[in-house]
Amino acid sequence: MPSRLLPPGIEVFERGWLSANNIFHFGEKDVSLVDSGYCAHQNLTIDLVRNALNKHGLSHLNKVVNTHLHSDHCGGNAALATAFHCQIAIPAAEASAVQDWNEDLLSYQNLGQECPRFTHQGLLIPGQEILLGRYPWKILAAPGHDPHSVMLYQAEHRILISADALWEEGFGVIFPEMWGEPGFEEVAQTLDLIDSLQVDLVIPGHGKPFTDLEKSLATARSRLDYLASDLDRNARHGAKVLLKYKLIEWRSKDLDLVNEWIANTPALQSAAKQLNMDTPEFEQWLVQSLVKSGAAQVEGQTLVDLA
């Protein structure tokens, strides 16, 4: 990681793909964590934060800030709030959904994932600034992967926390398009916004921080063109990512239970409809596609994750 580009008071906890990266910010007036990982890793997230606090002689965590409310970015919220009595700040557009814990608006049931219920005390409003550790960060709207996602930009040090709007070699699944809502144009607009910023270091939601913004933007735009040119491509890609993600959590699973999960996950049923497949056909295709890609293998009646 190009740590020389990180100013004092910022540390990145690079996580595996089940949990989003965590960014630890600390200063005299504030200690904050951006994104909290998946609930299955919540104990590790607590340990990472506690170790960082001890390392720097800090007594408390003020707040957790979520770039968006997918389960891999906020699944540790409830555990961190209990462990550290910290506040939680979320994108403003998600306020009512979190307050009511509205399963129809939140993504967890739709994507077949889990997230322990949490409450929020702060809102992230695009165009405003938020203090994270020692530095002010501008909140930027970043729709596409998620309609309500935000990024965080530190102009003085030219650092962008891009969440899943931009990775070194792409971006997060364009989920809205899987159920008939717009997403492709929103991704394009978000990439244009990133391109307009002065950035020396990008801290993505997944993968190591990187510096070659021009190359990553070119890769992302090429990927977007590929997906947007055929709606079925995005549906197939999103379906495979969702099953792979769940399999990372499971490690292995009886095929009957895998198929039961597929049948009960609304986003996957939307993908099946998009691809004109009935449920049994779609279940068979999805498992075989993951195996064919080298991301999984079938051992007897069990689907097994391959790194």
Rank of each mutant, 00 (worst) to 15 (best):
I46P: 03
G300S: 03
R236P: 07
Q269G: 01
I139C: 04
Y108N: 15
W167T: 11
L5K: 11
D30H: 03
A271D: 08
I203L: 10
H56K: 05
I10V: 14
K240W: 12
E214D: 11
E129A: 09
V173L: 04
A272S: 10
T67W: 01
V258L: 07
E249V: 15
L48W: 01
K138Q: 15
L6V: 12
K29G: 02
E281Y: 02
F24S: 02
G294N: 04
V31S: 06
D192W: 07
S289D: 08
L123S: 09
R117H: 15
G75W: 09
H120E: 08
F13H: 11
G172K: 09
G122W: 11
D47L: 02
S293K: 04
L224Q: 05
H85K: 15
G144P: 00
A95D: 15
F210P: 13
W261D: 09
F282Q: 06
L275T: 08
I161V: 12
A296G: 03
V31N: 06
E281S: 09
K240F: 12
I194W: 03
Q87Y: 14
E156P: 00
K29E: 04
P182N: 08
N259R: 15
M277I: 00
H25N: 05
L286W: 01
A79C: 12
A163S: 13
L123K: 10
R158F: 06
A155I: 07
G300A: 01
E181C: 14
L166Y: 04
L53S: 04
D164P: 08
W101E: 12
A97F: 14
G300M: 00
N234S: 15
V298E: 01
W285R: 02
Y245R: 11
H148E: 08
P116S: 11
V199C: 07
Q297Y: 09
V34A: 01
N43W: 02
L197A: 14
Y153F: 13
A307P: 05
Q284A: 14
D256N: 14
Y38C: 13
N22L: 07
